[in-house]
Amino acid sequence: MKALTIAGEEIRSRLWLGSGLYESPKQMNDTLNNGAPGFITLSLKKQTVEELKQVKEEHSFWEYLQQQAQHGAKLLPNTAACFTAKEAILQSQLSRELFQTDWIKLEVIGDKRNLQPHPTETIDAAKELIAQGFKVLPYCTDDLVLCETLLALGCSAVMPWAAPIGTGLGLLNPYQLGQLRKYLPEAVIVIDAGIGKPSDAMAAMEMGFDAVLLNTACARAQQPELMATAFKQAVEAGRLSYTAGIMARQEQAHPSTAVY
């Protein structure tokens, strides 16, 4: 299976996972071990000295995330909780300084109720971050014109939602997602947010998308570690299926046994 390459870097897997919402650092780590994701998302937060000390404890989530990075996953800081381009640009600069990476998951929220990304603030932030040398992976809606605009600016990929963050509703608008794949055949498109179950991820991969990014679907499963394995296999199967070429649907029955 052809490896995924973005901005000249080979990404080891087409399954990307978030690090949030797990019951414990160990559960997060076990889940990430089973999923073996290409990217792992994480974030920044204002912290007191006392909170900071917990970050450094043995078997903390940060210790595990560093181990994941040493074993081939790439860390992808996000700009969660940013509502303006200005906020997202500062958060990206802070993330680059802390994590020593140019990769950034650009997330500029436009509406607190459905966590929909803000299109124009995302564009403004992407423009500036690209000028500053970031490899920008913007979380966006499935709007074709918006995706085209972000790619034309120089974003390394676009990451349209399947459904609002954390809902697990799956691919709510497969027609529109299909239009993105059809009209942007060369672009790296990652389905981000709203994936609820492995079959959603597999459906996205069978449509020809390049990767899927999810968090809640694993973290809120009854057995996150096991669900990560299921997602890994679903993403691999979906990609293989797309690569193999799915048969054309037919209305008329045709026998598979040549006895008629």
Partner: peptide, 10 residues
């Protein structure tokens, strides 16, 4: 003055 460090996230 804002002091920030790593947290988990999606």
């Amino acid at each position: 003055v804002d002091v920030l460090s790593v947290i988990t996230g999606g």
